[in-house]
Nucleic acid binder design. Structure first.
Lengths: 245, 245
DNA sequence: GGGGAGAGATGCCGC
DNA sequence: GCGGCATTTCTCCCC
């Protein structure tokens, strides 16, 4: 099969909105939000039902080039090479793949209506704290979640045992400097908008970097070590325990 | 070809460190930094030379599940189904793909030693400002790039016409609230460490959000509209112009 | 569509 | 490995 035949196959597959997988030797040029060029090498090109395109090198996690869904693709045979020209006009983005050799091509209709279920997110953590406020400290009473301010959204907002307004910012990972500045922004905003001088700030995360800890304490805020809940993990443990009997 | 045959092909391909592309109907369970479950549907599974694994649904930009390079994969035939078990022990991550049907499978040795060249990054922007300080303002004299502080790295650091210390933070995209807090952090740090009360802060970006603008001005900082350079684009324009003659 | 913030963010570089 | 930070970040949600 020559490049000309592949051009026909690709054009037909695109017309039928099939999922296309192509392994080829190519060079790639991208122009849009940035500019990039990638010299000759072997890559996997994936064009999805929704016309999203991804290019993967044989190593590494992330795609080396890509374009969003709703991109238009056209196939041109030029100077003995196959040109896959992808264009996203609204975003002013262009991707040109110059294909010298096709290693394999597969296209077919794939169906998948499933949506992934994820547990252990920051939102799960925020819910857990809202429903189990003692995890923050005894006497903490949450008032609202996702409280909106001009300077941002507050994860959990409430009062402590003494009635002092308290802002809790959750991070599912190790809290860093930007987590502290985020909390600081919320606390300052609430102090100004409510006209009060005493507002507590608590950063809830599994751990915190050393510099973030220093900055947190400089600002009179507190750190509370809390892990995000992993519901599916808990579910699995129960399942396994039950299976054991 | 039945699932048993595919099991053999997959095992062999893994042993040979080939790049594997598999289209299949499957369910997926992930456990690691979080937990996830994805019900039965058609997906593309990609296992790379370096043992990174990516799972793509037929639509959407991002992989629905993935694991980093250096993951170990094993194939098990169980209850009439094919189980692809991926494990990253150091990271305590697990991915189980239960395959009910294989639509196609391809594996082969792909070679690619190329590294992508990208232009238009924040670093390019920082370099441009360092080499063309008048873009910031007349009389600005840069002293260093990537100046290190305990609270972070300063993009461009210098003095203005009046000799006042000036910190420039670059953003290649629309500057937001966190860009302002980042600049604020640097300015405060420099004021404390150098023991001076007057330090200018300039945010250089193509544009800025309305709230970020307000916060910036509240803090006495300035915004300078500057676009990141796209060298390849410029190169292309020259090429095209030359070709025109 | 803009703005704000999370993500299983990822990846890079520096210490 | 940790830390700080950019990313063609992407994606979601809300106004």
């Amino acid at each position: 099969m020559n490049l000309h035949d592949y051009a026909t196959l690709l054009t037909d597959a695109l017309a039928r909105n099939e999922t296309i997988v192509l392994a080829c030797t190519c060079t790639i040029r991208y122009s849009g939000r940035a500019e990039s060029f990638l010299g000759l090498g072997d890559r996997i090109v994936l064009i999805k039902n929704d016309k999203a395109i991804l290019v993967h090198q044989p190593m590494g996690n992330a795609p080396i080039n890509y374009m969003k869904p709703e991109t238009t693709h056209s196939i041109v045979f030029e100077n003995g090479k196959l040109l896959l020209k992808s264009k996203n006009t609204p975003m002013k983005e262009y991707l040109d793949i110059t294909i010298e050799r096709v290693h394999f091509l597969n296209s077919q209709r794939l169906e998948d209506g499933q949506t992934i279920i994820v547990a252990g997110t920051e939102e799960d953590m925020s819910n857990m704290l809202y429903n189990n406020p003692d995890l923050i400290e005894e006497g903490f009473r949450p008032v609202s979640q996702e409280e909106q301010t001009v300077y941002g959204f507050i994860d959990v907002f409430g009062t402590d045992k003494a009635g002092t307004l308290t802002i809790v910012e959750c991070k599912r990972y190790c809290a860093d400097l930007s987590a502290v500045t985020q909390l600081r922004r919320y606390v300052e905003k609430v102090m100004v908008s409510k006209g009060i001088s005493k507002v507590r700030g608590i950063l809830a995360a599994p751990k915190i970097t050393e510099n973030a800890k220093i900055m947190l304490e400089d600002w009179g805020f507190e750190f509370k070590s809390i892990k995000p809940p992993k519901y599916l993990e808990e579910f699995d443990k129960k399942q396994r325990t039950l299976e054991g009997f």
